[in-house]
Amino acid sequence: MKKTQNVLIKGTKDGLTLHLDDQCSYEKLKKELNEKLTENQRVNEEHPLITVSVKIGNRFLTDAQQEEIKTIIRQKKNLVVGSIDSNVMAKSDAEQMMRENEIVSVARIIRSGQVLEVPGDLLLIGDVNPGGKVVAGGNVFIMGALRGIAHAGANGNSNAVISASLMMPTQLRINDAISRSPDFTGDEEKREMECAYIDHTDQIIIDRLQALMHLRPNLTRLEGGF
C-alpha cells in the first residue's frame, strides 16, 4: 500500500498554503498535520509570524473543527491561519447567504408601532408611516413614502443604501450611522425620488436617486450587455 501525503505545504508568492487532503479521516489528518508541522518547525524558527492559508478541498469542517485546526497550526510558534478555504458549505449557511442576497418584496403599509425586518434587500410597495420601522440586512427600496425609520445594512454593511419615492424620514440608519430629519423642514419641500448612502466621512448623505448608479455600481445585477 502506497502511503500518500495528506498534508502538503506549498509556498506561493502570497505566502504559505497548506493543502489538506479531503479523503482521509479527520483524526488521521490532525495527526499528520501535527507531525508535518513539528518536523518543519526548525526550518522556520528564525522567521517572524507567517500567515498561512488553509485549503481543505471538499471537506466540510464544523466551527469547532476549524478552531481545532487553527489551534494546531498556531501552536507551531510562527504560523498563523489567515483563512480556511473549503469548496463545500453547510446548507444552513448557504440558505442564509441566499436570503442575504435576495430582494424581498412586501406590499403593505408599515404603520406606527410596526417593524418589518428582512435579512437581504427590501422592496416595500407601500409607505412607512411615522413610528413605523423597516430594517434590512441589505438595501431598502421604498416605492411609497418613507415617513418613519429605515435602517439599511443592519448587519454591518456600510455600502447599503436607502431609497424612497417620497423621502421624509424621522430617522435614517445605515449600518451604525444615524441621521435624523431637520427640526425645521422647509415649507412643503417635496423630497421625491431620493436616496441615502454613507459617504467616505461616515456621514449619511441624501441625494437624487440617479446619483446611485455612479456611487454604487454594484446595485446593477443585470448580467451582460444591452
Binding site: R111, S112, G113, N129, G132
Partner: peptide, 12 residues
C-alpha cells in the same frame, strides 16, 4: 393621526 395609524395597524 399618529395614534390612529397605530390602532389601524393593530386592527389589521
Amino acid at each position: 393621526v399618529r395614534d390612529a395609524d397605530r390602532i389601524i395597524g393593530l386592527l389589521e
